[in-house]
Structures are given as structure tokens and as C-alpha cells.
Nucleic acid binder design. Structure first.
Length: 269
DNA sequence: CGATTATGATTAA
DNA sequence: TAATCCTAATCGC
């Protein structure tokens, strides 16, 4: 589930359930015991998503200045459970609960307490996030222009743009008719701008629906939230199936160590 | 019941 | 380029 939209949606949902009140923190699995103890009982004051990174700040009076940093990686999940907390199921690294809800974190690639200087470092190394305010476009264009790597690789590089993953990169290249292997610095200023605006629109849509749906709803004839599974995307994982625009079979290519799908006709070199 | 897979990213070779 | 970390669901036998 985790591309940028997931994390921004998570920040919003966690905020609604946990913000303000003292939060109970524990590590049913045990691997985060000591750290959980340090934030247990502190009031959570801020929930922020930066690309695929989630940060939770706590009231300085009730905790130290440490900030919770979570990165879900490929398989991490935050699952909502009712309050009061039920018996934990599976490997729960961190459980956060208020009297409104319980949130169980499993399988994160990063779950740690950090100091503010480290927070500055992590966020400072990220490219612009289409879901955060600011002049992302100029920065995105600048960073793309410095890369000779394939656009398919540049879109995965969190220093170029923060929050895009393997599904969105394939879908964005398809939607803009750009061959995934084209060097990033050969994109015109206009192409870069269209990619950026597309990312802003699509990630926002992803947050709203809490899933990736890139398919045009007029094309499917249903409202976005109801587009059936398997009908939501244009290219991702559709190897050999007919392109939804031109019916040519979708092809697969390996870029930046991951598989990527594209239409050879709609995305010429 | 074991193998495979997953919307990630780093480290080693 | 390959190995590695983290976990759970799914699939084939």
C-alpha cells in the first residue's frame, strides 16, 4: 500500500484519532519496548507526512524532544483497531492508542525516535513532495534536468520527487506518453510541468480514495471509488494485456532494479 | 506447508 | 546486480 498518498492519508487518520490526548505507546512484539516506554503517556501534538516518511511529535512537557519516525517500506502496515485495544495479532512493533482508537504498526523498515536535527536532515534530503505546499514544480524541473538516468528511475528517486513509488511511476509515464527509459534530462520543460501537475492531482486522489486509482472515471463510467480492482490502472502489472488506449500489448522493462510496465505505442522512445 | 510475492530502500560485491 | 531487512497474504502441491 505505501506510496506517498498512503502516508499522507495515514497522518490525517492518526491525527484524527490520536492528536491532543495522552497516547499509550507499547511494543507488543518487544522490539521497540524501550523507545515506546519513552513516549508512553505523552500527548501527540503533530502528525506530518514527508514523501513516504511519517513523523509524530509529542508535547515537550510530557516527553523529551524526540520525534517518532516511521517508514513503512515495502511491507509495513498501520492497521486501525477499536478502543480499548484488543489482544494484539501478529508482529506488532508499535501500538499507539487513545480512547478513540488503536493503531498497530507491523513490518516497518524504519521505526525509531529521533532528535530534531535528524528530522531536519531527513526532510532536507528529500525532493519536493507533490502533497506538501511550496514551489515544488521549479525544484522538480531542476532536479530532473540534472539527471541522465531514465525518467522511470528518476521518478523513484526520492531526492528528485518525494512520495512516488513503483505503481505511480509506471502510471505517470503512461499517462504522459513518455517512454520509461528516456533520460530524465531530455524531458522538455513542458513535459516536466505536466508530470508534476499529474503527480499533484493523482496523489491527492490517492489520499482521498486511500488507494491508487489513475484510470479516468469517464472512461470506466463509474465513480472513482467504485472502479473495480483490476480496472484502476493503465500499465502497472498489465504485461501482455491490451493497452486501454490503443489495444497494443503492454510490455515490461526493468528500471532501477524494479519492473516497470508501459505501452510501446503510446510511449514511443 | 513451503514458496512466492508486495505500492521500499540500503548495503555489499 | 544481488543480498538484505521487515511481515503477512496467497498460491501451488
Amino acid at each position: 500500500m505505501p506510496e506517498g498518498h498512503t502516508i499522507h492519508r495515514l497522518a490525517r487518520d492518526l491525527r484524527r484519532d490520536l492528536k491532543g490526548d495522552p497516547v499509550r505507546a507499547s511494543s507488543p512484539q518487544g522490539r521497540f519496548d524501550a523507545e515506546a516506554g519513552r513516549i508512553d503517556g505523552a500527548a501527540a501534538t503533530r502528525f506530518e507526512a514527508w514523501g513516504k516518511h511519517l513523523f509524530v511529535e509529542f508535547d515537550a512537557a510530557s516527553a523529551s524532544d524526540e520525534i517518532l519516525h516511521v517508514h513503512l517500506g515495502l511491507i509495513g502496515k498501520f492497521r486501525r483497531k477499536p478502543a480499548p485495544p484488543p489482544d494484539p495479532v501478529g508482529q506488532i512493533r508499535l501500538r499507539l492508542s487513545s480512547d478513540k482508537a488503536t493503531w498497530d504498526l507491523s513490518g516497518p523498515t524504519v521505526c525509531e525516535l529521533i532528535r530534531p536535527d535528524r528530522f531536519d536532515q531527513i526532510t532536507g534530503e528529500l525532493g519536493p513532495d507533490p502533497l506538501r505546499r511550496g514551489d515544488g514544480l521549479d525544484e522538480f524541473r531542476r532536479r530532473l534536468g540534472r539527471k541522465r538516468i531514465p525518467i522511470g528511475a528518476a521518478l523513484l528517486d526520492q531526492k528528485v520527487v518525494a512520495g512516488i513509488g513503483n505503481v505511480y511511476r509506471a502510471e505517470f509515464c503512461f499517462l504522459e506518453g513518455i517512454h520509461p527509459a528516456r533520460p530524465a534530462n531530455t524531458l522538455t520543460s513542458d513535459e516536466a510541468e505536466r508530470l508534476w501537475n499529474l503527480a499533484c492531482d493523482q496523489l491527492k486522489r490517492g489520499v482521498r480514495l486511500n488507494r491508487i486509482v489513475t484510470r479516468d472515471e469517464n472512461e470506466v463510467g463509474t465513480k472513482a471509488g467504485r472502479i473495480a480492482a483490476g480496472e484502476r490502472l493503465y500499465a502497472y502489472k498489465r504485461m501482455g494485456q491490451p493497452c486501454r488506449r490503443c489495444t497494443e500489448p503492454i510490455e515490461r522493462i526493468e528500471i532501477a532494479n524494479r519492473k516497470m510496465w508501459f505501452c510501446p505505442t503510446c510511449q514511443p522512445r
